[in-house]
Design a protein around this nucleic acid. Sequence first.
DNA 1: CTCATTTACGTAACCGGTTTACAAAACGAG
DNA 2: CTCGTTTTGTAAACCGGTTACGTAAATGAG
Lengths: 349, 349
Amino acid sequence: MSDKVARLADVARTAQVSVATVSRYLNNQLQLPDDTATRIRQAIAQHGYQPNPHARSLSLGRSETLGLVVPDIANPYFARLAAAVEREAARQGYGLTLCASLNTQEREREYLARLSRTAVDGIIFVSNHADDGSLRDPINSSNRRIVILDEDIAGVRGSKVFSDNEQGGYLAGRHMIEMGHRQIAFFGGPEAMRSTQARLAGVRRAIEESGEPAELRDIYFGSYSPEHGRACAERFLSSGLGATALLVTSDEIMIGALEIFRREGVRVPDQLSLIGFDDIAPFVLFDPPLTSIRQPVEAMGRRAVDLLIRGLKGEDVDGVVEHLPVELVLRQSVARPPREAITRKTKRP
Amino acid sequence: MSDKVARLADVARTAQVSVATVSRYLNNQLQLPDDTATRIRQAIAQHGYQPNPHARSLSLGRSETLGLVVPDIANPYFARLAAAVEREAARQGYGLTLCASLNTQEREREYLARLSRTAVDGIIFVSNHADDGSLRDPINSSNRRIVILDEDIAGVRGSKVFSDNEQGGYLAGRHMIEMGHRQIAFFGGPEAMRSTQARLAGVRRAIEESGEPAELRDIYFGSYSPEHGRACAERFLSSGLGATALLVTSDEIMIGALEIFRREGVRVPDQLSLIGFDDIAPFVLFDPPLTSIRQPVEAMGRRAVDLLIRGLKGEDVDGVVEHLPVELVLRQSVARPPREAITRKTKRP
DNA sequence: CTCATTTACGTAACCGGTTTACAAAACGAG
DNA sequence: CTCGTTTTGTAAACCGGTTACGTAAATGAG
């Protein structure tokens, strides 16, 4: 029991072979006579030898570690995504370094720089806002392999994994129309984001395909936050236009919107039908349980890691873009529309 | 624009100095004449030089990276904890490698082995179940620095950071007693866990201190899961003993319990007063908004990182144990007790 | 002017692996 | 028995930094 950690050289000396022999035996599955192999194994056990990862990384030029950039892990949606990514990375023998960008481009770039300087072999990048273009270049000029996950960043090369946002909007829209709604409202995320536009386009397609005289109105854009949800709901109620069904495009927005609807006494689904998006929050427990589009979070995380690692192993995955299928989870927040439109009670006491 | 990444030697050559000079200029804040310093800066800029982290780690014997072992990042409580840890680590210039143990000791040990082999300088360990002793030795024999966070593991050396669970139980208990409750139920986590016992002890202390003839009954233990919450609630209702207030010691358990209470038509707080623990889930939106003990999650994460890094920097923090203060958040799930005890409606249709 | 000290750097030895180039030994064919 | 080939093994170069040690020149004190 020496106080120093055993090195390869110690093992080699004990096994009476050279370091190269031990190294090759360990890595290159070099065929060795039983005699020699046994001596090496015993020496390793005796010293409790574990290769020094820093040395290994330096020598190999890789570290078997991936980086995940995510806006905020405290957000349950990204937490789930991160969990899925971590699980798959671990399954494939990779470690995961986590970076929370806190939704600012500055931090995103900072992290990107850090990661490209840091010991990660590749990066999974999840952003949460429209890129003004200042993210594109640093990403592309990073010499790391990159997979864009969940939200597109225009002009970035590498592979990409998204949920099928358009289909999500479509499923929600179709369900509303089938339930008899003809006036549909939409609480979107940031207007410039691809996901927002795709979801909106999906609803539009559902309307067109139905052939019904359904109308999309009260379309609001803003951040994926409860604050925006509250603002949307207040604006929606005060506009009093009488949409009978509403697609809310994220859990966060939904949480804010529900607060206002509850405060103002809006009865769901009697007065207003509601469909959520994400379906991460425990909406079963809400009052009423919320019908929602569920994103394939686990699959997205898995797929992103898989693509990234395949890329690292030399497979050509550049330009691969995947849209994973979403699902409409039926609960109790959508009903047939009421006879008359919703009328607002009071703005605030 | 060569295709090779610039090395320190390239910079040195261009700046017409030796590698040692550049390295020391970059690290040891070695004082250099403006002339030389400028040449070096220009050379660095010209090559777009970034130190190779693997080489740096090998040479320094550290990587400025911490490891976080957590049962499940998808769980909002641990997600918040992880977010806090990541934020503080980043603030102090450290990266964070994430490991989800999925609550099995096997994986915990596996990760521990991986981390002790991997390029992390220290580990923050969050476990979620009672240790049967098989975690203690691997942790102690790991040559990394360790901070135990959130849940104690007996016999582990290193520093530890917890929330003040006993105080949490106490605050909840005192509030219930002050509101007039004399029959208090307790849905605990795993019986063998320190946190569970501490919370229970806190309620006991509140009862003793009050001098009132209050009684603790319907004490159930189990996993931190909605399933356990459902089981607790069913057992509680069928026992029909008539506790009028209930402390539920985690969000997860609460979610399960609420499902049953809602299904069975238990009116909160008219029939039954409820206090939660953790206060991570959006309980404001539940019906009714839930009074809850809030754990100082951000502070815990910050503190753990801080202790770990201080330990890494040579400060003696072994044996330091901190209990961070919790907070009672008053909302609307606690009322004065009803005249008569709750009577169960039906077990199941 | 001399000697001590500081300034401004350079040389080379590490850190601990992987891998290439090559030697010695063993083996087989002719 | 000789020569080529395979097996088994070694020495040393490399990955790209950090840093102990050393030295030449400049500065300053006496």
